[in-house]
């Protein structure tokens, strides 16, 4: 009897492990998409693609929130024989890093025709669409209307002494913002910005989501985050306000999504179809109406009232293609030292 029990248990274990090994290989009617866009926004788009084309999307989402070693590392490690067909990046810098490491393949989608060229790679390695912006978020209970900030430089102002926060500038969109500030302000002024931020009692927190949470909770009066983060706080009726900074100055950093075709992808045709879908006006409209509240980079796309049009803001003039190099230099130098020195 005992032998029977042991045999059945052993057979069950072997069968379970075997079931784990025997995955079905990627079928031609499937496309594998790695995405650094938050799953809550990416999954509905993937579902819509499936509804329209019948092609199943195997989505592998990532998030800066976990502080894990994310999908970009996976794409680099898989370079010799990739599993992904498409990388849907939440910002163009990660897409440019893939390009610099020969992980992406140029693809000029017919859907890219209406998209502004300044938000796409000149060689076609990535194409930018629906954008977020880097904005100031402030707690309306702590900041009276008369003291409302207007510029990122207000983080250095004595009225926000000890009550401003910024996500770790080595990760996520904050890293891109830091690189952009160095590009636009110049080395000396950008360094001074970060130095004075700390001198004014500013705090480095883990992510943009954390900036949103802690400003909304009143732990900080002001911070810098992304428009989608702000929109979550707004939908939750938190006491927060938004400022698209530096309207009359250096402008607001606009962060388009970027669609990247992976070199040597197992299903390049499926990947191209997914990229075509991402770059379509319909997807831009869907992302504008979603909780992400993203701004279409095309003109003439209908948007809800709570979404700003790109024409209403002053975009920061940056060379997106060069930001990745700038960021690499800063991550190995100033920013790394700054973060290490000023994290407790």
């Amino acid at each position: 009897m005992r032998m029977k029990v042991v045999s059945v248990t052993a057979a069950t274990i072997v069968a379970t492990c075997a079931a784990g090994c025997l995955e079905s290989p990627e079928a031609p009617h499937e496309v594998v998409v790695y995405s650094s866009v938050d799953e809550i926004f990416a999954r509905p788009i993937a579902q819509q693609f499936k509804n329209e084309t019948g092609i199943q999307v195997r989505l592998v989402p990532d998030t800066e929130e976990t502080k894990s070693t994310g999908l970009l590392n996976r794409l680099m490690a898989e370079k010799a024989r990739p599993q992904a067909d498409v990388f849907w990046s939440g910002d163009p810098v990660r897409a440019a890093i893939l390009k610099s490491r020969d992980i992406s393949e140029p693809y000029r989608s017919p859907q890219a025709d209406g998209l502004p060229v300044r938000y796409s790679d000149p060689q076609g390695h990535w194409a930018g669409f629906s954008a977020r912006a880097r904005v100031l978020i402030y707690n309306t209970s702590l900041v009276p209307e008369t003291e409302r900030p207007t510029s990122v430089m207000d983080l250095l102002d004595s009225r926000f002494r000890g009550s401003a926060c910024l996500a770790n500038p080595l990760f996520g969109t904050t890293s891109m913002h830091a690189a952009a500030l160095f590009q636009v302000l110049g080395e000396v002024n950008a360094r001074e910005f970060f130095t004075r931020f700390i001198e004014n009692g500013g705090t480095i927190v883990s992510s943009n989501g954390e900036v949103r949470r802690r400003v909304a909770a009143g732990d900080f009066a002001i911070g810098i985050t992304d428009t989608d983060d702000f929109n979550v706080a707004l939908r939750e009726r938190k006491p927060v306000g938004i400022v698209y900074p530096d309207h009359d100055g250096i402008g607001t950093l606009v962060i388009p999504n970027a669609a990247v075709l992976i070199a040597g992808a197992p299903n390049p045709e499926g990947g191209k179809r997914f990229i075509d879908f991402l770059l379509s006006p319909e997807t831009e409209e869907a992302l504008a109406h979603s909780a992400a509240a993203q701004m279409p980079v095309r003109s003439g796309i209908p948007i809800p009232a709570y979404v700003r049009s790109l024409t209403e803001i002053t975009p920061m003039q940056v060379d997106y293609d060069k930001l990745a190099d700038e960021l690499e230099r800063l991550s190995n130098g100033f920013l790394r030292e700054w973060v290490t020195r000023h994290s407790r």
Binding site: E23, E26, V32, V33, D38, E39, I40, F41, R58, L59, V60, P61, D62, T63, E64, E65, T66, S68, T69, G70, L71, N73, R74, A77, Q83, A84, S207, N208, G209, D228, D229, V232, R235, E236, A291, A292
Partner: peptide, 26 residues
Amino acid sequence: TTVLLLQPPGQDSLSIALFTVMANAP
């Protein structure tokens, strides 16, 4: 980390699902 880096596409776990919605979910 291990699941995020090794999961076959589309085979995520509950903890991964939880963390990938954290940043922007209510």
